[in-house]
Computed example of a mutant assay.
Amino acid sequence: MRHPRAAVGASVFGALVLTLVGCTAVEREAGPTPTPTVETVVQVSTSGPAITGTGPTEPYPGVDFPLPDHARTVTIDFECEGGLNFHIELGDPMAAGDAALRGTCDGITSLTWPVTDETAPKLFVWTPDGVAWSATPHYSTAEFIRNEAITAECEAFSAVYSELSNADIGLTEYQAFDEAEWKRRVDAAAAELETLADTSETTMAEPFDALLTWVRDGGHAPGTLVTDVSLIDPISDTCNTNHTPLILMGEFGG
């Protein structure tokens, strides 16, 4: 606020009084109360035509799978019958940093992928020969959100799985050490797996426990983890659905 100037010739005291009066006599008019605004994000969903086939989409490069510019996720309703397994890749999972997904041919299975600049517009399907299938895409502007707890546990289990796998391969395929060293490695991995099972906050707690029991109760003979992954599958499927696949660090081989 600008104060009125004192008249020429007035005393300093008078000027001071005038200034003080000006400050107390004039009140600012209260402005309107700001109205908070909420940004509304509208999610847009669209569907594409079904893609059909019979058997695996071989050889490469698979089949064309258009990706609209607005898409940030895509859910594929994959339909097949017969009770056999199927396996799907969207683009190149390794390049895009996501996972291949799988299921069983017993009707419609809905599977979701993130869509990024690295997602190639190609679909790869593996089913047994003669199995008819259809894949209906549903695109959304909603971002794919990975579950942080699952992400952390998949990363931790990748290390455990690597240790168990390297113990088996090192003994049975490379004869890099004896069974005493194999057992030492397996016991060390089992201790880490026990900690992971005890602290798990996800649906993988039960599969962790099942694998731990198998390893410690003598079910894990040298080489069996490499040839039988049935106890790993429930863990791997959860990690893949979250698009944080297990990454194994191989100690042996090229």
Rank of each mutant, 00 (worst) to 15 (best):
A6Y: 12
A7D: 15
G9N: 05
A10G: 01
L16I: 12
L20M: 06
L20W: 03
G22F: 08
T35N: 13
V41R: 08
V41N: 03
Q43V: 14
Q43R: 06
V44F: 02
T46S: 06
S47Y: 00
A50E: 01
G53F: 01
T54P: 00
T54R: 04
E58T: 13
L67M: 08
P68A: 10
H70A: 07
D77L: 04
F78G: 03
E79M: 02
G83T: 05
H87R: 15
E89P: 09
D98K: 12
D98N: 15
T104N: 08
C105L: 02
P114A: 13
T116V: 06
E118W: 15
E118N: 12
P121Q: 01
F124T: 00
V131I: 05
A135L: 05
T136E: 01
P137A: 07
S140Y: 01
N147V: 07
E148W: 00
T151S: 14
C154G: 14
F157T: 11
S158E: 10
S158D: 04
A159Q: 15
V160W: 14
Y161K: 05
Y161L: 06
D168A: 03
T172A: 11
A176Y: 14
D178L: 12
E179Q: 05
E181H: 01
E181A: 08
K183Y: 10
A188L: 05
A190C: 00
A191D: 04
D198M: 04
T199G: 10
T203G: 13
W214A: 03
L225G: 14
V226D: 06
P234G: 05
T238S: 11
N240L: 06
N242L: 06
T244R: 04
P245V: 13
P245W: 13
I247A: 14
L248S: 07
G253P: 09
G253Y: 08
